[in-house]
């Protein structure tokens, strides 16, 4: 039986006065959202998206239609953020605006069994640990990433680029932007890490990998990652969610997958 064990931590950091990050760590749905906007708009926006995903976690979802479920969820979050913004702007706060990034991991299934469905909108990050190695799964929706993709700058230049916080997609804008989806076999991502850029911007992948390797319990891992980001300067709100797939040998082999599937079937599969 697949169990997911998770841990989460967040910290306002050393510079900001308020924490605009929000997260969700339920039994099957995991989210990190990094809000932005003045007059507490960012907090509201990230809380809205977490609330929408929280509804999926509470009420259940069709795990064979993961991308549709998530798209619907993002649509309602988008609508709520826009409505909220329109309300404030018409209520005498013309410069009120809000948006949020979102990364989420959901336990889903396809023809062959349970999978991770991962989704990204913005520059929060999704990593997975596979064979002991940390591997960034999501691709930032940021100007710097676009420049990297275009070969205009290298990774070193990206790290100090003045535009490194300019993102090209987010939730809450005039139109709902297309998120990126990823599907990974559970066996290929026995540990999944979601974090805001207050983490990935403060500590490198090597440091995060080291922390994860030394933290067997995902709760410890999440807390240590956030602490390291704050220790490194805490320039931004830092949030991390770490999820472990337990009861599953970390193996990519078909036999392990098959065993997993049959076990799922015996136990009544996923809701």
């Amino acid at each position: 039986m697949v169990h997911l064990h998770s841990g989460a931590a967040t910290d306002v950091g050393r510079v900001r006065e308020i924490n605009q990050d929000s997260y969700l760590a339920s039994s099957r749905v995991f989210v990190v959202a990094d809000g932005m906007g003045g007059h507490h708009g960012g907090e509201v926006a990230s809380a809205i998206v977490v609330e929408e995903f929280g509804r999926l976690a509470e009420q259940g979802y069709d795990s064979t239609r993961g991308t549709e479920v998530v798209t619907e969820c993002l649509r309602s979050a988008q609508q709520r953020i826009r409505d909220y913004g329109a309300e404030h702007r018409s209520g005498g706060q013309p410069d009120w605006y809000a948006g949020t990034t979102v990364v989420a991991a959901l336990l889903c299934e396809d023809e062959e069994g349970p999978t991770w469905l991962l989704v990204n909108l913005g520059d929060s990050r999704i990593y997975r640990v596979h064979d002991g190695r940390l591997d960034q799964v999501s691709v930032d929706h940021s100007v710097v990433q676009e420049l990297l993709d275009a070969g205009e700058i290298d990774a070193a230049a990206a790290a100090v680029h003045p535009e490194r916080h300019v993102i090209t997609r987010a939730l809450g804008g005039p139109v709902l932007r297309e998120p990126d989806f990823f599907v990974l076999p559970l066996a290929s991502a026995a540990r999944v890490v979601l974090c805001s850029d207050g983490v990935s911007g403060m500590i490198g992948d090597d440091e995060m990998e080291e922390i994860l390797r030394g933290s067997e319990d995902p709760r410890d891992a999440a807390e240590r990652i956030v602490a390291a980001a704050v220790h490194a300067g805490g320039q931004d709100n830092a949030t991390a969610v770490v999820v472990d797939v337990v009861g599953l040998a970390e193996s990519g082999s078909h036999d392990a997958r098959t065993a997993l599937v049959s076990l799922e079937e015996k136990l009544g599969a996923l809701p």
Partner: peptide
């Protein structure tokens, strides 16, 4: 400013 910049007019 260490915050997101967000292209509304994307």
């Amino acid at each position: 400013e260490d915050d997101h910049h967000w292209p509304f007019s994307d």
